[in-house]
């Protein structure tokens, strides 16, 4: 095997988050599936270690309907605060999740606009500050804005989760340029969340240097969710390898065969 490929062997590449070394850089959501029974199969095909679920959708009263009972034992739970409209509500949901035994990771999702489901960065910052202070591993879902991301970093977020496009829109990386700036400027892992509709878009995000991607709708609503999970797994690995390998500079114009400054070397 040649040296370059060996040096980017994906099995040596891991993402340190919340004190855990994650081998898989694909996070998966549990919403929108047609049955709970399919979820473990999807997780296996995706290779995911981190699984997000809306606390509001966890059915604690009916064990058969409780999504937590369908997750493999080693899964890292990432409860999200879907349904919260304010920092206060998000904090309350995080506390409920912790009390229910979901661990201390939380994805802050605060939405005040039910039409586009765009996150409220200001409320998100307030919730992040409080929960990080309390010792939670906080992953805030946000609209990609450099100023907000810096504040979230200062507030103690463990990673930043900018949206690629609105939740469930499957529109891909509409915010690509803004995410690229976050990747360059923020030292925390940038995990692209929401909007990724195709494996190629996940690969693109990873190639840009995203630390991970979170995919839910695109897998859950695919014709075959298990195959799609596998496709995303491969795409994320491919994109990551592409990033690590360091793609050659893309040339904007073709290089003139006789260099314009070639005369300098002459004589």
């Amino acid at each position: 095997m040649n040296a370059i490929i060996q040096s980017v062997n994906p099995s040596d590449d891991s993402l340190l988050l919340g004190g855990v070394n994650l081998r898989s850089r694909l996070f998966v959501g549990t919403g929108k599936f047609s049955s709970h029974e399919i979820v473990p199969l999807v997780l296996e095909a995706s290779g995911s270690q981190v699984v997000t679920m809306a606390l509001r959708r966890v059915d604690w009263k009916n064990p058969q309907e409780n999504i937590l009972n369908y997750l493999p034992p080693n899964t890292i739970l990432l409860p999200n605060t879907s349904g919260a409209r304010t920092a206060e509500e998000a904090v309350r949901i995080a506390h409920l999740a912790q009390a229910a035994g979901c661990g201390n990771w939380v994805k802050i999702e605060i939405v005040q606009d039910q039409r586009y489901l765009l996150p409220d960065n200001w409320e998100t910052l307030k919730a992040t500050e409080q929960l990080a202070n309390e010792g939670f591993v906080v992953l805030p879902y946000m609209s990609p804005d450099l100023g907000a991301a810096r504040r979230l970093q200062d507030a103690g977020a463990a990673a930043i989760m900018p949206l690629g496009s609105p939740i469930g829109s499957n529109r891909g990386l509409q915010t690509k340029e803004l995410i690229r700036i976050l990747i360059e400027e923020i030292s925390l892992p940038i995990i692209v969340d929401a909007g990724i509709g195709r494996p190629s878009e996940a690969a693109e995000a990873m190639e840009m240097g995203a630390a991970a991607v979170l995919v839910n709708t695109a897998i859950a609503t695919a014709g075959d969710p298990v195959f799609m999970a596998q496709a995303f797994h491969l795409a994320v690995v491919a994109g990551r390898l592409g990033y690590l390998a360091g793609p050659g500079e893309r040339r904007i114009t073709a290089e003139a065969s006789s260099p314009l400054t070639g005369f300098l070397q002459e004589g």
């Binding site: 599936f33 047609s34 049955s35 709970h36 606390l55 509001r56 959708r57 966890v58 059915d59 604690w60 009263k61 009916n62 309907e65 349904g83 919260a84 206060e88 509500e89 309350r92 949901i93 409920l96």
Partner: peptide
Amino acid sequence: LPSFCDWVNM
């Protein structure tokens, strides 16, 4: 998927 629970009163 029939969903019995989609809400947490906060």
